[in-house]
């Protein structure tokens, strides 16, 4: 499968998830066991009315979706995935007005579990807004020759 096909499948995946659609998420990049999604700044997603910073909940949703996509795009994956656990650390508030981009990578997979790490960034690539580490259900393909 070439890169264009993979991107197209990822686009279909994200547009089939009503919650991802409601948050305005879109695919930036997809690769084997990796994904990068973005989410535009939206006033409806503000969690701190005083500063206009987007809610941690919306950041969690972006990170969770991106991690799930990284698992789905793993070459040994057969079937669907679900989150087992997800830990998120908020390093700093996202800058109001800037879109958020999440990058996720499967660091290890077993027959039944995928371990994923991710980070969320705004326009500042050096200092993440948040980082995440999670475990997801995984079904390893048995037909890997």
């Amino acid at each position: 499968m070439d890169e264009t096909q993979a991107l197209e499948i990822a686009r279909q995946f994200i547009s089939s998830l009503p919650h991802a659609r409601a948050l305005g998420m879109s695919v930036v990049q997809i690769g084997p066991g990796r994904a990068s999604f973005s989410m535009p700044y939206d006033e409806r997603l503000i969690g701190d009315p005083e500063t206009g910073v987007m809610s941690g909940g919306a950041v969690s949703a972006l990170l969770d979706t991106t991690c799930g996509a990284a698992v789905m795009s793993h070459p040994e994956m057969a079937g669907l995935t679900a989150t087992l656990d997800l830990r998120i650390d908020y390093m700093r508030p996202a800058v109001p007005g800037q879109a958020l981009r999440a990058e996720a990578e499967c660091t290890h997979v077993t027959r039944s579990v995928a371990f994923v790490r991710a980070r969320a960034l705004d326009d500042d690539d050096e200092n993440p807004v948040a980082t995440a580490a999670g475990a997801f259900t995984f079904t390893k393909r048995e037909d890997m020759a």
Partner: peptide, 27 residues
């Protein structure tokens, strides 16, 4: 609400919606 769905085939709530719900409840 329909927009909280993650997997429309099951259908199941989106893990992100669940996480957001927990976080907002905690705040």
């Amino acid at each position: 609400d329909e927009k909280l769905i993650g997997n429309p085939e099951l259908p199941a709530l989106h893990g992100g919606a669940t996480a957001a719900f927990l976080e907002v409840t905690a705040v």
